[in-house]
């Protein structure tokens, strides 16, 4: 032990400490400044201090968070619930908006034809095997729908009810060869019959037959329902003439009509359950 106190390293350490102490005293007394050795060490250790402080802060946060875990979970659940509510409101809003647009289109038609009684319906399914585009809707006899009631959209005629159940019905479109509609050309007021034609099905068109050979019908003319027969009300748009040909019998003219409605893309329709002058096809 005595040896250590008399050794050179000990003397050197004591000397350095004395020098440092003196420097500290002098700096403190004279300039009230940090001693250079402290300044030097502080600069050297500063990054470690920052790191240490950061780690300490994180640990502190973690423990605080653990302490608040229950509160945070409650808050999280509450926020999730709020978000779900807002999302649902957004979906409802979009739905109302779409419905509003749908009914606004019909309002104009209702104002023009105050005698129409409408029953809105949603397209529930398509018959994939039928190229004529027949489909099912979610309205039936319970909703006042009857066999052969006309089915329309705000744009024009879609077809009619070919089969009816209590809660659903099947709609045959104007492209179907079994459906015949009394028609009139809007510009010339010439009458004819619109019916589906399998030869035109591929183009999504149907035919307007029994036009007089002297007919003035031209491409672009609009074809409307004539109201003849009482199945369809007069004045519904069926489509536009895209071609005029001679009938195979060479007695009359035949116009190719492209319907205004694309039956495949329909999602909502209106069934006209009653209108002025409504007749019917009976049970055929």
């Amino acid at each position: 032990m005595k040896k250590f106190f008399t050794s050179r390293p000990f003397k050197a350490i004591v000397t350095v400490l004395c020098v440092l102490l003196m420097v500290s005293i002098v700096f403190a007394a004279v300039g009230r400044r940090v001693a250079p050795q402290s300044d030097f060490l502080g600069t050297l250790l500063s990054p470690f201090q920052t790191f240490g402080a950061s780690v300490t802060r994180q640990i502190d946060r973690m423990f605080t968070a653990i302490g608040r875990l229950d509160t945070l979970e409650d808050e999280n659940n509450r926020l999730r619930e709020e978000l779900r509510t807002y999302r649902q409101q957004l979906v409802d809003f979009d739905e109302y908006k779409r419905e509003n647009e749908f009914f606004r289109d019909y309002l104009e038609m209702k104002q023009q034809h105050s005698d129409f009684t409408f029953q809105p319906a949603i397209v529930t399914a398509r018959d994939g095997a039928d190229a004529c585009g027949s489909f099912s809707i979610d309205a039936g006899t319970r909703d006042g729908v009857a066999l052969h009631d006309p089915v329309i959209t705000a744009d024009g005629l879609v077809g009619y009810i070919s089969e009816v159940g209590s809660t659903m019905s099947t709609v045959v479109t104007v492209l179907d060869p079994t459906l015949r509609v009394g028609a009139v050309v809007s510009r010339t007021r010439e009458a004819g019959v619109v019916a589906g034609d399998t030869a035109l099905l591929g183009d999504g068109a149907c035919g307007l037959s029994y036009l007089a050979s002297s007919s003035a019908v031209t491409i672009g003319d609009t074809v409307l329902t004539s109201g003849a027969g009482g199945v369809f009300p007069a004045g519904l748009i069926i489509g536009t003439v895209t071609d005029v040909k001679k009938d195979p019998s060479n007695v009359s003219l035949y116009a190719v009509v492209r319907p205004v409605i694309d039956a495949r893309s329909l999602t909502q329709v209106m069934v006209i359950t009653a209108f002025e002058g409504q007749g019917g096809l009976g049970d055929e």
Binding site: V123, A125, R126, G128, A131, G202, G204, S265, T267
Partner: peptide, 17 residues
């Protein structure tokens, strides 16, 4: 798919069942 309004994969007027 096959009965969806709007049609599923319709090619030249033919849709699969």
């Amino acid at each position: 798919l096959q009965s969806a309004p709007g049609g599923f994969a319709v090619i030249a007027g033919c849709s699969p069942v």
